[in-house]
C-alpha cells in the first residue's frame, strides 16, 4: 500500500539533533534518527518521554526549537516550506482516532484525496472503497463513525491515513484508547501494512507487538534516544540500564502496557 518512491540511497526520514521545549521543559533534547524505506520502527518509552511530541514535530504539528527534519532529503523544518504540502506526505493516526463525526466512513477516507490531492469524486470513492474492502470495512462505507466499534474506527482512521499514499505512516499509540479485546484487529492491520512494505514509525506501549512486528526498536527516555536496535537485542539483551529498568517495569505490569494518561477524546 506504500507509495514510497524514494530512491534507496536517501533515507525516507532523517532527524538531526531535533530539540523541542515547552517553556522551561525540554521534551526532546537532541534526537538523531534515520528511517529507511520499508522500515517499521517502534518508539518505546514511558509516558512523557517524548514519543508523541517526536511524531508531532515530524509532521509539523509542532515547531522544532533546534535541529532539522529531512523528508527524502528535503529539510521540512525550513520555515519557507509549504507545511500543508509536507503534512500531506505523511499519514497520521491518533490515539483517539479523531475521525470526522459529520462525515461518513467513506467521506472520511476520501477527504484528503479530494480536497488536498485533487482526485475526482468518483475516482476517490473507488479508491476509498477498495481500501476499506481490503480491511474488511466496505460494508460500513456509508455509515457514520459513531456506529462503529473503537477497533473499527481506528482501522478506518488508518485507512484514512493511507488513502493518499503517504511516504511514512506515523502511529501515535493507536491502541491505547481501545478496549483490550479490540486491540488485536488494529495491530493485525498494522502488521499487514508493515509486511507489505509501508514505512511505519509508531509510538507504542504494546511491547509484545513491537517485538513481533518492528524491524527496529527505539527507546526514548527523558527526550533522548537511550538505545536502539533490533527487537531481539532491545528486548532480549538491553544494554542501557534505563532500558532494562523500563522493560522490567512494563513487563511486570502485566501484558506489557504501561497505564497511560488519557487525554480528552
Amino acid at each position: 500500500m506504500s507509495a514510497s518512491t524514494a530512491d534507496s540511497a536517501t533515507p525516507v526520514l532523517r532527524l538531526e539533533n531535533v530539540v523541542k521545549t515547552f517553556g522551561d521543559r525540554v521534551v526532546l533534547a537532541g534526537i538523531d534518527l534515520t528511517v529507511d524505506a520499508h522500515e517499521v520502527i517502534a518508539l518505546i518509552g514511558a509516558s512523557g518521554s517524548g514519543k508523541s511530541t517526536l511524531l508531532r514535530t515530524i509532521n509539523l504539528l509542532e515547531q522544532v526549537d533546534d535541529g532539522r527534519v529531512l523528508l527524502t532529503g528535503t529539510d521540512i523544518t525550513d520555515p519557507r516550506i509549504d507545511a500543508d504540502a509536507v503534512r500531506a506526505r505523511f499519514g497520521t493516526v491518533f490515539q483517539h482516532y479523531n475521525l470526522f463525526p459529520h462525515l461518513t466512513v467513506l467521506d472520511n477516507v476520501t477527504l484528503a484525496l479530494r480536497h488536498v490531492h485533487g482526485v475526482g469524486k468518483a475516482a476517490a470513492a473507488a479508491r476509498g472503497l477498495e481500501l476499506l474492502d481490503r480491511v474488511g470495512l466496505a460494508d460500513f462505507a456509508r455509515s457514520y463513525p459513531d456506529r462503529l466499534s473503537g477497533g473499527q474506527q481506528q482501522r478506518v482512521a488508518i485507512v484514512r491515513a493511507l488513502a493518499s499514499g503517504p511516504e511514512v505512516l506515523l502511529l501515535d499509540e493507536i491502541t491505547s484508547a481501545l478496549d483490550p479485546e479490540l486491540v488485536g484487529e488494529v495491530l493485525e492491520l498494522v502488521r499487514d501494512l508493515g509486511a507489505s512494505g509501508t514505512t511505519i514509525l509508531m509510538a507504542t506501549h504494546e511491547m509484545a507487538f513491537a517485538r513481533d512486528v518492528a524491524t527496529r526498536v527505539v527507546f526514548l527516555d527523558a527526550g533522548v534516544i537511550r538505545e536502539e536496535g533490533t527487537p531481539d537485542q532491545i528486548f532480549g539483551a538491553p544494554r542501557d540500564p534505563r532500558t532494562r529498568a523500563f522493560l522490567d517495569r512494563v513487563t511486570s505490569a502485566g501484558r506489557g502496557a504501561a497505564p497511560d494518561d488519557t487525554t480528552a477524546g
Binding site: 504540502a85 505523511f90 479523531n98 470526522f100
Partner: peptide
Amino acid sequence: HPSQRLAARSLGLGYIASLRLVILPQ
C-alpha cells in the same frame, strides 16, 4: 474539539479548508 483540527491539518488540509470542511459543519 481541537483534535478535529489536528486531524484535518495532518491530512494536509490548509487552515481555510479545515475550517470549511471539518470545523464549520460540526
